[in-house]
Amino acid sequence: MSEIAQMDLNPRGAVKSESPLAMTRVNVVLAASARDAGVVVREKPFLGHLVLRGRAEDEAFRAGVERVLGLALPLALGPVARDEARGVSLQWMSPDEWLIVVPAGLEFDAEAALRRELTGHYAVMNTSGGQTVLELTGPKVRELLMKCTPYDVHPRAFPVGKGVSSVFAKSSAVIRRVDEERWELVIRRSFADYLYRWILDAAEEFGVFVSPSESAGSVEHRMAREAAVEGR
């Protein structure tokens, strides 16, 4: 018998033991309905995301973008240009970079139209597969965001319509305020699982409800896509 102090590292009973997966909070306590929840989370999947690069001081570039999207190119950080009815938005990301979001299935046509209309020094990249949109609604969303990002989400600094890119939950996200109590996060695919679980965990205290996303291979989504393909 050697002189070794042996410890029981799993003292059942007195101390709570947790599996390494204990922090995997997929099963947070969800609110009974969207009406009881302080935060309602809904993914808006399969939207068309295009990254547009170009020279903002080039008048022909600005005019071309406006002809295709029907939205004036924002020239500084601030309000996201948005047409709610058509589901098209255009956001300033950097002095020479913009994020275009179009409805599912229309990204191919939007890119083709931009390539038709634009000349000179520009770039369009389809990043639809690389990112997704989470919509957060409810009276407690602002409080939830305060837990997640160092950016000031007070109405004074973050009025309705504004969109910024910032640190979010030690990762990054594009944060957009669509309405008083409606926000959007544009998140990267590789962080989506982590951020989704972070948001559910952070929102649990306010009462969180996950609203089913409208498409995820639904009939309407498929039909919209087929219609867009036929129209080509």
């Binding site: 990301m93 950097s94 970079e97 890119s165 910032s166 990054s172």
Partner: peptide
């Protein structure tokens, strides 16, 4: 300096 999480400039 680099604005890594913002405009990336």
């Amino acid at each position: 300096w680099y604005h890594a999480a913002g405009c990336r400039k």
